[in-house]
């Protein structure tokens, strides 16, 4: 078996730029925004795998990220464990839940719409369990997370160290995605997307591949969710709320479904839009809503694929089209 790891150059350049940013923008507010961009681009890559590649409309990405963040934080503080030990436990929990949701909905033959309803309901259940189990989760106020040691924090300081760890993970995720779509799994998922019945006929195990895709996506969501919690210093239902799913999907659609750079472009744009409209209070919701409507009606391809097409036209090479 030939193993060739592809590290896409534009991704390297993009992340190098991001890695240099702290030298230009070093105040805590700017660092925070940059970290959030990195967090959300990982979230969006996960969404790209679950929703884009395997076409499972999971509206429970916030819950999957939240489950891991809460589990890790609760375990670490109750048993005085190092959070680096409890993060894998939280990730395992989330992956189990994500895989189960995927498995059950495929086996029961739910269409995309019912998957959306089931997972949205699951998100609401998660939210209410967190609110209801006050003795464990501190309910609405949220749980203060134990302190996580970020690599190199003694040299760089906690803020910059956490930024680099999270950015490095996002870079890892983007490289992973680039290789994922070329892998056996990615090709199988592409076959299932274009014609499920034929894919089954040639022996592609639809259930297995979809569950694997959901598990991988859940794992990315879970790791990122835990980092998000520790970076924040607390986990609360407000952070992992249903509107997080909407924001992730908006980023995905804006950047472009099933594209390599869409998540980076989408996450950066939306985080900046959200930050710059902060002064409008609740009207931010309206901006998000209008963007969602306009995007879905007029612009389902996303910025990244339109840019790619324009680029292909200039350079004369064509990327194979996909239905």
């Amino acid at each position: 078996m030939k193993i060739s790891l592809e590290i896409p150059k534009p991704a390297v350049i993009f992340f190098l730029i991001f890695a240099l940013l702290p030298f230009l923008f070093s105040n805590p507010y700017q660092l925070r925004i940059m970290t959030i961009v990195a967090i959300f681009s990982s979230f969006v890559y996960a969404a790209n795998i679950i929703i884009g590649e395997s076409r499972q409309l999971f509206l429970c990405m916030s819950a999957l990220a939240g489950i891991s963040a809460y589990t890790s934080a609760i375990l670490a503080s109750s048993y005085h464990l190092n959070p680096w030990i409890t993060i894998p436990a939280g990730v395992l929990f989330s992956v189990a839940v994500g895989a189960m949701l995927s498995y059950v909905s495929i086996v029961r033959g739910l269409g995309e719409v019912f998957v959306a309803i089931v997972t949205l309901t699951f998100t609401l259940i998660f939210e209410n369990v967190v609110l209801g189990l006050r003795w464990l989760t501190m309910g609405e106020t949220g749980l203060v997370t134990p302190v996580l040691w970020w690599p190199l924090q003694e040299i760089l300081g906690r803020r910059v160290a956490s930024y680099y760890t999270i950015l490095l993970f996002a870079f890892f995720v983007s490289v992973f995605y680039a290789n994922f779509i070329r892998s056996r799994l990615g090709i199988a998922l592409r076959a299932i997307r274009s014609d499920r019945i034929s894919a089954e006929v040639v022996g592609i195990d639809v259930t297995r591949y979809n569950v694997i895709a959901a598990s991988i996506g859940s794992a990315i969501l879970a790791v990122t969710g835990s980092f998000y919690g520790y970076f924040n210093g607390m986990v609360s239902p407000g952070i992992f709320s249903p509107s997080m799913d909407i924001i992730i999907i908006l980023m995905l659609l804006l950047g472009g479904l099933r594209t390599l750079y869409g998540p980076l472009i989408g996450a950066t744009t939306i985080v900046l839009v959200l930050e710059s409209t902060r002064g409008f209070g609740q009207l931010t919701l309206t901006f998000l809503g209008i963007m969602l409507v306009v995007l879905i009606l007029t612009f389902r391809e996303g910025i990244s694929s339109i840019a790619e097409k324009a680029f292909a036209r200039i350079s004369g090479s064509e990327r194979e089209p996909e239905a």
Partner: peptide, 11 residues
């Protein structure tokens, strides 16, 4: 689309 409308109206 209706989710977007919901957010718009809620905002």
């Amino acid at each position: 689309v209706t989710l977007g409308l919901a957010f718009t109206l809620e905002g």
